[in-house]
Design a protein around this nucleic acid. Structure first.
Length: 279
DNA sequence: ATTAATGTTCAGAA
DNA sequence: TTTCTGAACATTAA
């Protein structure tokens, strides 16, 4: 599930690791198929052990552990992955443990992933810059300007909801927050990007920032399957604020008309046909 | 038994 | 060139 607000919450939860040194990288005893680790488990151990953690970053929906010596460990949780310092939802599906310590304290980064679709990659700073350059991954959704957003999408013939999910246009928005922010902006998810006016782009941009920042304050959304947790294994709170996501048939909080579920690009979209008008 | 689920990435076709 | 579809990855709950 993790989209930008959930991954940003994970990032903040890992900040206590900064300053510690990597002591051990362990593949837990786990009957499942191991997750993808690039370039390899042995390479991770060889390159990381003994290095100190200099910072914790985020790029779109990925957590970045910055290491001394110009290395970065990128954790990409995809559908059901999460990182934690404290505990994980279930003992099985624990996929990686990184033990860290200094002379005063210790902590361990746990990577847990129910479906196991996530990827962990160790990259040099140069490889990182190349892989996440702006033509492969757009500007971060929290920092993109309204002009850059409009410039990147205004000639596209795609529906706005579909375009917002394109990580090469902007990084961080996923299926849940795309529906939510378009409801706040009062724009139909079916509108073609090339039909949107300047004022509408401004509304989308404002809603983008507002919704993501509000969701971060609530530490993200934990859906019915309970998979997502923050770094202390606590559920997020933003699911109680959802206006349309997974609320088909329930009244729109703005105009009381029932929320509708449609399918765009093979994924569910939720919107209010009453206050998100015009195709 | 079938279906859908928050994501990414590729191949192939329109 | 752009856009769309389907598939694959693996698990689980409805």
């Amino acid at each position: 599930m993790p989209e930008l607000p959930e991954v940003e919450t994970m990032r903040r939860g890992l900040l206590p690791l900064v300053g510690l040194t990597v002591r051990q990288v362990v593949q837990p005893p786990c009957q499942r198929r191991p997750i993808a680790v690039e370039p390899s488990w042995s390479s991770l151990r060889r390159r990381m052990i003994g290095r100190s953690i200099t910072g914790i970053g985020r790029v779109g929906k990925r957590v970045v552990v910055e290491l001394s010596g110009a290395w970065r460990l990128v954790v990409e949780p995809r559908m059901t992955g999460l990182v934690s310092l404290a505990d994980v939802p279930t003992p099985d599906h624990l996929r990686l443990i990184m033990r860290c310590a200094d002379e005063h304290r210790q902590a361990e980064l746990l990577y847990w992933d129910r479906r196991g679709l996530g990827i962990v990659r160790l990259l040099t700073n140069d490889e990182f810059t190349e892989r996440y350059s702006h033509d492969r991954l757009g500007p971060d959704a929290l920092s993109i300007t309204v002009d850059a957003l409009r410039d990147r999408l205004k000639t596209s013939r795609r529906a706005i909801k579909v375009a917002l999910l394109d990580q090469r246009a902007l990084a961080g928005v996923g299926n849940l927050y795309a529906s939510e922010l378009l409801h706040v902006a009062a724009i139909s998810p079916r509108r073609r990007c090339d039909s949107l006016r300047v004022a509408e782009w401004a509304a989308i941009h404002a809603a983008l920032v507002d919704v993501l920042e509000e969701a971060i304050r609530y530490e993200g959304s934990t859906l019915a399957d309970g998979t997502y947790r923050n770094a202390l294994n606590k559920a997020g709170g933003y699911q109680n604020c959802h206006r349309v996501y997974d609320r088909a048939g329930q009244p729109c909080p703005r105009c009381q008309r029932p929320v509708e579920r449609i399918v765009q690009a093979q994924r569910a979209t939720f919107y209010c046909p009453g206050c998100q008008r015009r195709k």
